[in-house]
Design a protein around this nucleic acid. Structure first.
Lengths: 224, 224
DNA sequence: GAAGTTGTGTGACAATGTCACTGAACGAAG
DNA sequence: CTTCGTTCAGTGACATTGTCACACAACTTC
């Protein structure tokens, strides 16, 4: 097998798998492409695969009873939808869904292969539990932020995260509200304030960051 | 071995372990007692054991940078501190701590035994992943509640959860504020309103529920 | 360009969070 | 039984955030 261009080498901890496990993984999994805006998993639909992202990103959000959505976390290339797996192995449903934000290339590991690898490989277990650990830590941090961080600080952080290389954030106010668990109007006001300070300029569906340092300062210290 | 009074039989899914795994678990673990108010695990301290609670409860909370605390979830008898385990296996720290709320009896499963069982027993894996699944679902629900549920509804829910058989909740306003991620004053006001409606009466460090049905109605429908 | 859809701005008001206090209730000395 | 210190609860003023009801601007489609 040609290892160097194989996807496994893109995952640092997986590339430490012993040969046997490695070929077991390579043989048992397959690569899939999913278009933008597709729902990869959703409540009530039991997941049968573990997904590892090679390209693109997936947004995971909780769907409230009232139909509203809260952002939970984002799966980037090189990461896995590992929380889904807990539910997949436990046969339990949960109320979160995953939506592709870009075109996505992913590795599909079927339940059986996943289960076999968990049993045989210490390295694979380390990979899975470490992925868990990171996600859970993120969730704890999210709760902390929602409860204790003022909105402008959280908004500044998110703008910096979502900005492309030109400092442009190509999203609507309503998207940001969703992302931060608040209302569009609140985002509009906060962005209006940022604009008044000369930190951003706004176009329809697009925000340009003009003073990245000021935003960073707010995001990090919590004060302007 | 006398199984009927052994702790394993208290965990439904563990009692389905095949004999070999079962004795492996019984032999490798030990029972410990911890007094009330002890910190079982804390940030920066890597956990070396998986804990299964036999008696009592443990409160798990995120400790904010600012020193404030947010309630995350509660581990009851028959449950495990399983999220700690992810971090324990991944050698990563996180910012949550666990404090005993009562005297606690727990089973200590050392890392080595845990790891061996994960490898050998399908049933043990199911136990662990199912515990994960439940916790994660709870965390998602918590985020949902914090973002979308009005405070009075969340307070009513929590009062009902914390009440003893006589409908008495033996906690302070400040404890409840902590529990719901809000300030003491806010709890005082909300409880004042409940009292005005005749739903509760208050003593220092103690709240008595007078109209459980009304509280339930508020908790479930979101309207008085 | 007319009509429909989506995105943004704004004012009024409600709910919640923060701050600065006050005094009451309790426990531990003396 | 008092005194003192500590913890707990109540309150008003104000800041921040959330909700509702709009108006209107910017894009799309036909």
């Amino acid at each position: 097998m040609d290892r160097d261009d194989h996807w496994i080498s893109r995952f640092e901890s997986l590339s430490q798998l012993p040969n046997e496990a490695r070929s077991q993984l390579a043989a048992g999994s397959q690569i899939a492409h999913v278009g933008i805006g597709q729902t990869v998993f959703r409540p009530g639909q039991s997941a049968d695969n573990l997904l590892l992202l090679l390209e693109g990103s997936v947004r995971v959000q909780q769907v409230s009873d009232t139909g509203r959505e809260v952002f939970l976390y984002r799966v980037h290339a090189g990461e896995s939808c590992v929380l889904t797996t807990a539910c997949m192995l436990a046969f339990e449903n949960y109320a979160a869904e995953g939506v592709t934000e870009t075109d996505v290339t992913a590795v599909i590991i079927p339940r059986g292969v996943f289960d076999a690898l968990i049993a045989t490989s210490k390295e694979f277990r380390a990979f899975v539990f470490s992925a868990y650990s990171r996600r859970i830590t993120d969730l704890f941090k999210l709760i902390d932020d929602i409860v204790f961080q003022p909105l402008d600080v959280r908004l500044a952080k998110r703008l910096l995260e979502l900005a492309d290389e030109n400092g442009v954030v190509p999203v609507t106010h309503s998207f940001l509200g969703n992302e931060l668990g608040t209302a569009r109007e609140v985002i509009s006001r906060a962005l209006g304030e940022f604009q008044r300070r000369g930190w951003v300029s706004q176009q329809r569906g697009k925000i340009s960051l003009l003073a990245t340092p000021a935003l960073k300062h707010l995001a990090e210290t919590g004060s302007a």
